[in-house]
Every structure is written in structure tokens, then in C-alpha cells.
């Protein structure tokens, strides 16, 4: 079936895109598909450490992202976007690989299917 590249461009919690991207990624690996979740623009904020959902009623997407990594999703964050969002490597969830534009292009080229959120 080849790899599916899922590109997330939106920040978490403002709308459903980030939650849907993580849900689809988990669904894919559960069906033994190879999933690359690529975070760009404000999508890199999904990988920001320290998300505190207590008292909000929201699903904590930092935990969901960690679960997806544990399940086998390969998660990449665009280096330029990380810098634009004033984040550093230490702010990023463990297991997320920080890559540059050329590496992202290669991932997308290799993927059989690309889904954009």
C-alpha cells in the first residue's frame, strides 16, 4: 500500500484538524499502514510539550501524539516552522524528528498518498 504522508498545517485545539490528523494516523498504523505525520506552519504546535487540558474538557493532543508515536507513526516537524513559532528542540515532544524542507519534500515524494489537514 506504500506510505501515507499526512501534513498538518493548523495549530491544535482551534479547530478539529489536528485531532483528526492524529486520529487518522493512529487508524493507519492500526491497519499496519506506514504513516508519516508531517507538521508544518502552526501545525508544529501540536508537538509542543506541556499541554495542560485539566478542567477544559478537551482531549490532550500532546498525549495523543505520544500514543501515535508509540504505535509506530513517524512524526516529523519542519525546522523553519518550529523557529517561527518561537520553539526550540527542548520544547518538542520526544520522538518527533525535526527536519528541513528538502527532507519533507523527499518524504512526500516517496509517499503513495498525501493527506493535508
Amino acid at each position: 500500500m506504500g506510505t501515507i504522508a499526512m501534513i498538518l498545517r493548523r495549530s491544535p485545539y482551534g479547530d478539529i484538524n489536528a485531532a483528526e490528523a492524529v486520529r487518522h494516523a493512529m487508524g493507519g498504523v492500526a491497519d499496519e499502514l506506514s504513516i508519516d505525520l508531517i507538521l508544518v506552519d502552526s501545525g508544529v504546535l501540536l508537538a509542543k510539550k506541556g499541554q495542560d487540558d485539566s478542567g477544559t474538557g478537551y482531549t490532550n493532543l500532546e498525549s495523543a501524539l505520544k500514543d501515535s508515536i508509540d504505535m509506530g507513526v513517524e512524526v516529523y516537524a519542519d525546522k523553519l516552522s518550529v523557529r517561527e513559532q518561537d520553539m526550540e528542540t527542548a520544547d518538542i515532544v520526544d520522538g518527533v524528528k525535526i527536519v528541513n524542507g528538502a527532507e519533507i519534500a523527499e518524504l512526500i515524494k516517496e509517499a503513495k498518498t498525501t493527506m493535508i489537514f
Binding site: 495549530s11 491544535p12 485545539y13 504546535l45 509542543k48 510539550k49 506541556g50 499541554q51 495542560d52 487540558d53 485539566s54 478542567g55 477544559t56 478537551y58 500532546e62 518561537d86
Partner: peptide
Amino acid sequence: DEDVRLRGIRGED
């Protein structure tokens, strides 16, 4: 405050 905490934004940020 609730939306700040949810997004992992720290006080010093």
C-alpha cells in the same frame, strides 16, 4: 488562562 494552559504556553512566554 484555560486556552493558554491547553496549548502548553508557559507564563514566562
